[in-house]
């Protein structure tokens, strides 16, 4: 079995810290927003935990940012500048998920350390990592101390706007999580990608017909 070292240790740590933080933030976020429905913990506890993990997430984001920029690996997030190539690649990938995978066709994208994401992933994660996550962290930070950041909040249009953005993104991340986890099971075995996220090594399916 051929193995490929796809996820360096810092990335793996970052990923799982992120994962835990996301779960905790989602649960406490739901608790804060829907106290009368959920009732898992006290409001105060939910807010405190939410704040702590919010800061962990902020810190973690910068670990990711610094690691990827310093190592130059950030380029794996950048879709091909050639539009035609990018569109074709995306279409090919979409066709795979919608049809090829059902027909037993092989994944047109082969992850390598330098080209980890398929064009669709590149597009999605670029938006998530450089737009949605920073926006979520920023809105969370503003809400964390609305008095201190009142000028920024006013600039953003008001605390209700900031909160709506924060909640909307939270709902997006929550729903995205289902897709993310599902897609993680679409390796050559159901656990292949997940294992790789622990070990760093992605097992590659023996290519038939070679």
């Amino acid at each position: 079995m051929k193995k490929i070292y796809l996820h360096p240790l810092p990335v793996r740590i970052w990923h799982w810290v992120n994962a835990i933080s996301f779960i905790v933030l989602i649960v406490t976020g739901l608790q804060i927003r829907y106290r009368e429905i959920l009732g898992l913990m006290k409001f105060r506890e939910a807010v405190d935990i939410h704040n702590i993990f919010g800061f962990i997430l902020i810190f973690n984001f910068f670990i990711w940012l610094v690691f990827y920029i310093v190592s130059g690996k950030i380029k794996i997030y950048i879709p091909p500048l050639n539009l035609k190539k990018f569109v074709m690649g995306s279409l090919k990938q979409a066709r795979y998920y919608g049809y090829g995978i059902l027909m037993g066709e092989p994944n047109p994208h082969h992850s390598t350390p330098d080209n980890k994401f398929n064009p669709m992933q590149q597009m999605a994660y670029l938006a998530i990592m450089l737009l949605l996550i920073p926006l979520q962290l920023l809105s969370g930070l503003l809400l964390w101390d609305a008095k201190r950041f009142s000028d920024f909040i006013s600039l953003a249009g008001g605390i209700k706007i900031v909160d709506t953005v924060h909640v909307f993104l939270f709902l997006f991340f929550m729903s995205f999580l289902f897709v993310h986890i599902y897609l993680a099971t679409l390796g050559h075995t159901a656990t292949a990608h997940i294992k790789a996220m622990f070990t760093g090594y992605e097992e590659l399916e023996e290519e038939h017909g070679h």
Binding site: I32, Y34, V47, S154, G158, I159, K160, T164
Partner: peptide, 13 residues
């Protein structure tokens, strides 16, 4: 109209 008023958990849209 109420951009500047929001209470966690209470004034949700």
């Amino acid at each position: 109209s109420l951009k500047q008023f929001y209470v966690l958990g209470s004034t949700r849209l």
